[in-house]
Amino acid sequence: GIPATNLSRVAGLEKQLAIELKVKQGAENMIQTYSNGSTKDRKLLLTAQQMLQDSKTKIDIIRMQLRRALQ
């Protein structure tokens, strides 16, 4: 079985993952909103794209940590 310490770690990672998935969803929504907007929305679009990139990276890292914890 999986050690108890790993189980609480997994629960924490799953919570983090859920949050990051919401951030990713929000960033994707912002990108959709701003991509057909005016030029003043360009900065917001770039910010949203950066957020999305960061979020995807975090999600990958969390998933990797989850896999390790579940081994």
Rank of each mutant, 00 (worst) to 15 (best):
D54F: 05
S35C: 15
R67V: 08
R67G: 04
Q16F: 03
G1N: 11
T33W: 13
I2Y: 09
E28C: 09
Q16D: 04
L13V: 01
S8P: 06
Q53S: 09
R63V: 08
A48Q: 02
K15R: 13
D60R: 14
Q50M: 08
L17R: 00
D60M: 14
V23Y: 08
S35A: 09
T5R: 06
V10K: 04
A27L: 14
T39E: 12
D60I: 14
G12E: 15
L45N: 01
L70D: 03
M30Q: 04
N29D: 13
E14S: 10
K24V: 05
R67L: 08
K22H: 05
M30L: 12
L13K: 00
I59E: 01
I59S: 01
A11S: 06
L66D: 00
A18E: 08
A48V: 03
R42C: 15
G37T: 06
S38L: 11
R63I: 12
T39I: 08
K43G: 09
A4C: 15
M64I: 07
G37V: 05
A18R: 09
L21V: 04
G1T: 11
D41Y: 05
N6I: 11
M64R: 12
Q71G: 08
D60P: 01
L52F: 04
N6K: 07
R9F: 12
T5N: 13
K56Y: 04
V23M: 05
L46M: 09
Q71E: 09
P3H: 11
L17H: 01
G37W: 01
I19K: 10
Y34M: 07
L46G: 03
L45P: 00
I62F: 02
V23W: 03
T57M: 14
R42N: 12
G1K: 13
A48I: 04
L13Y: 03
V23R: 15
Q53I: 09
N29G: 06
S8M: 07
K40D: 07
V10I: 15
T5H: 14
G37R: 03
T39L: 08
L46P: 02
Y34L: 14
S8N: 09
S8C: 15
L45M: 05
L46H: 08
K22W: 06
Q25H: 06
D60K: 15
L66M: 03
L44E: 05
L13M: 03
Q25I: 07
G26D: 15
I31N: 01
D54E: 12
T39G: 09
E28F: 04
D54Q: 06
T5D: 12
Q32H: 10
L44F: 06
A11H: 06
Q71M: 11
I61M: 13
A18I: 07
R67N: 05
A48T: 02
S38Y: 09
I61E: 10
T47W: 13
R42D: 14
I31Q: 01
L66I: 14
A18V: 06
G26Y: 15
Q53Y: 07
L52H: 02
N29L: 14
I62N: 00
G12R: 15
V10D: 01
